[in-house]
Simulated assay, not measured.
Amino acid sequence: MKNQKIKNIIFDLGDVILNIDVPVASQSFANLSGREQSEILTIFNENDLFRQFETGTLSEGGFRNFIREKLNFSDLSDEAIDTAWNSLLLDLPPERVDLLQKLAKSYRLFLLSNTSSIHITQANKILEASTGIKKLDDLFETVFLSYEMGLMKPDVRIYQKVLEQAGLKAEETLFLDDNYDNIQAASKIGIDTIHVQKPVTILEYLKDYAV
């Protein structure tokens, strides 16, 4: 049901706007290295790889060197690493972009994503191939990215920073994310939320807002 107080909508990227399949990346690195996927996941988790890269602690070069070192593949090219990392990014249905453009006529729209620079570069390529729109910045007033902010969801500070920087009131703001912990954290500071759960998409969740 539509919240009549809402003036601003913040979107997550993965599995909200852009379809993703996270385990595909670890399988891609397993295929490159000849290791089991479970071993790759253990390496990533023990070294907190996602958090390091997605909060900007690890640079693109640092990330690639980490992969080469941990997988014992010193001659692995940047392109091969990026392709494997990006393999979890699937498609971006054009009808979701159509919805965003329609919503933008009535609401201030923002993106808030836990992501890395390599993924954003690829996401923009997928967006352009699907819709002709060159970058995510063309769809939102501001694109907030964890690796640029030095914070990641569900840290409450990232939501507070978005509200402060954009000049938003929590009670006038709706946030959509596929991760329950991220939703809960935003709710704690008064942001209205929608937990996006496949196979339902934002087209259904926001149909009352797009009229």
Rank of each mutant, 00 (worst) to 15 (best):
F66S: 02
H195S: 04
N124D: 11
T57Q: 13
I67G: 02
P154Y: 02
K5D: 15
L103W: 07
S146I: 10
Y180E: 14
G62N: 09
K7G: 12
T83M: 04
T115W: 05
I133M: 12
Q184N: 12
I194P: 00
G61P: 08
L58F: 02
S28V: 09
D21K: 07
T57M: 10
Q160I: 03
F63H: 06
L100S: 02
R51D: 10
G150K: 02
R35N: 14
L88Y: 06
Q122G: 03
E171R: 08
S130V: 08
D78A: 13
L206P: 00
V162M: 15
V22Q: 02
L76T: 12
E60G: 00
I40D: 03
S74I: 06
F144H: 15
S28N: 05
K169L: 15
D177F: 10
Y205M: 01
I191C: 12
D98M: 05
P93E: 13
R35G: 02
T173P: 01
T173Y: 01
D82A: 15
R157S: 12
D192T: 11
D98L: 14
D98C: 04
F110L: 04
Q37P: 02
S130F: 13
F73R: 12
D138R: 07
I194M: 01
S26L: 10
F50M: 06
E171N: 13
I9C: 03
Y147V: 02
F63P: 00
V143F: 03
E141T: 13
L90I: 09
D75K: 04
Y180Q: 13
S106K: 13
K102N: 09
F73H: 06
M149P: 02
S106T: 14
F11Y: 00
